[in-house]
């Protein structure tokens, strides 16, 4: 490291024998660097910055997306939105989905990650592949396949439960509000489970080995190690996994659209479906301004939620530091 720095310095002093060459070299490097970032910056400006700005502009207009943007309506899109029970229904559905998947996913995927992280355990890669497989499949196609598995009276789930004697007659899983949301949450969790597990595994592998060594020297059993060392040290990782799970659950459009279509009677309509229906509904008159307003309100809610979770990450990181330092100190004292 220091050798490299020294060498770099020599080169630099060599070059700076004449100031002109140095600055020319630097200037060419800068020019190349700007050229290298230029395409990404253009994309970033056109497809990220501009759209963010424009969605605010649109939200103050009544606009179908065709013709000039001229019918300025002030805040009326927002006030209409906030008075629309259908929007709040979609908002609530999104929150239910986000909360329920997180509650199911976090503990279950941690459990599997802990098993796969055992020191002597064969077939880790095999199991990881099996449980990760749903992650790489298209959510939309999964939704269609699951619709056939749950939706049909004679199909898999009903057939299986009838045969096992757990049901006396077929249940219309996707035809009732409560069970439809249940199926949606279940399928969504199944699909994201492998991802959460890999996040946990990466977190587990980043834990300091000396804490475990110290605990073992102190004679802690594996249950005690889990309770007093692993879980407290994992707290910052848990916050990150929670954040990533929540961010993922905010966009269930593909799954909802294909599995339930938002039904029955809007029972599973989420905010992204609500926006889609206003912006791209082919049968009615598209309302780009109104849809943009809905996107902004939900976007702000998401932002506040991520801010809250980000604060949680920060707080747990600070709290996680303490046991880590204590464990390290204890391990050091033993030597």
């Amino acid at each position: 490291m220091s050798l490299g720095a020294n060498e770099a310095m020599t080169v630099r002093t060599d070059a700076s024998r004449s100031v002109v060459t140095l600055s020319r070299r630097k200037r060419t490097r800068y020019a190349w660097a700007y050229l290298f970032v230029l395409p990404q910056v253009v994309f970033f400006a056109a497809f990220t910055i501009y759209p963010i700005a424009m969605s605010y502009v649109y939200s103050f207009y009544e606009w179908s997306g065709i013709g000039p943007l001229e019918d300025s309506v002030g805040w009326s899109n927002f006030s209409e939105l906030l008075r629309d029970p259908a929007f709040w229904n979609a908002f609530r559905n999104s929150l239910i989905y986000i909360g329920a998947t997180a509650a199911i996913l976090l503990p279950s995927s941690l459990l599997l990650a802990l098993v796969l992280n055992r020191a002597v355990f064969r077939g880790k890669v095999f199991y990881r592949t099996v449980y990760f497989l749903p992650v790489v499949t298209a959510a939309s196609t999964v939704g269609i396949v699951m619709k056939f598995i749950f939706g049909n009276e004679n199909a898999l789930v009903n057939g299986l439960l009838l045969k096992l004697g757990l049901l006396s007659e077929p249940v219309p899983w996707l035809g009732q509000a409560g069970t439809a949301m249940g199926v949606l949450v279940l399928v969504g969790s199944w699909k994201f489970f492998g991802m959460a597990m890999v996040y946990w595994l990466a977190g587990l592998q980043s834990l300091p080995g000396e804490a475990f060594e110290a605990a073992r020297i102190d004679g802690a059993g594996s249950a005690q190690v889990l309770r007093y060392v692993t879980l407290p040290l994992l707290r910052p990782v848990a916050a990150v996994v929670l954040l990533l799970t929540v961010v993922n659950s905010m966009h269930v459009f593909d799954l909802v659209k294909t599995l339930t279509g938002g039904g029955p009677f809007y029972a599973t309509e989420t905010v992204d479906l609500y926006i889609y229906n206003y912006a791209f509904n082919t049968s009615g008159f598209p309302r780009i301004g109104y849809a943009s307003a809905a996107g902004i309100v939900f976007g702000l809610a998401i932002f506040l939620l991520t801010l809250l979770l980000g604060w949680l990450v920060q707080a747990s990181r600070e709290r996680g530091e303490r046991p880590r330092r204590a464990a390290a100190a204890r391990g050091g004292g033993r030597e």
């Binding site: 990220t48 759209p51 963010i52």
Partner: peptide, 19 residues
């Protein structure tokens, strides 16, 4: 770049569509 990490795609898709 990093700041926009958490901006959902659904949020920007309407203007991208118009663009």
């Amino acid at each position: 770049f990093t700041a926009t990490m958490f901006i959902p795609k659904g949020y920007t898709i309407l203007p991208v569509y118009q663009l």
